[in-house]
Amino acid sequence: MLEIAPGLTPTELKHCALIKLNFDSKEMAQILGISQNSVHMSRSRIRKKLNLNREDSLSNYIAGI
Rank of each mutant, 00 (worst) to 15 (best):
I65S: 01
R54D: 14
S35W: 06
E27D: 15
R45P: 03
I19E: 02
K20D: 05
D56P: 00
P6R: 07
R47P: 01
R54V: 10
T9R: 03
G64E: 01
M28P: 06
E12A: 06
M1C: 05
I65H: 05
I46P: 04
E3F: 04
D24F: 08
I65V: 07
K49P: 08
M41D: 10
S25K: 11
R54T: 09
H15E: 00
D24G: 11
Y61R: 04
P6S: 10
L32M: 11
M1E: 02
P6E: 01
Q36K: 14
S25H: 14
A29R: 11
S35G: 14
L13I: 09
A29M: 11
A29Y: 03
G64S: 06
L21C: 09
S38V: 11
N60Q: 08
F23I: 05
K14S: 02
P6H: 07
G64K: 06
L32Q: 13
S25M: 14
A5T: 02
S44I: 03
K49V: 06
F23L: 15
L2N: 06
L50H: 02
A5Y: 00
R43K: 13
I46M: 04
R45E: 10
D56K: 05
P10S: 11
S25F: 08
D24E: 13
S38G: 12
L50C: 08
E3Q: 09
S44F: 08
L13W: 00
S42I: 02
L13M: 10
L58V: 00
A5I: 03
I34W: 10
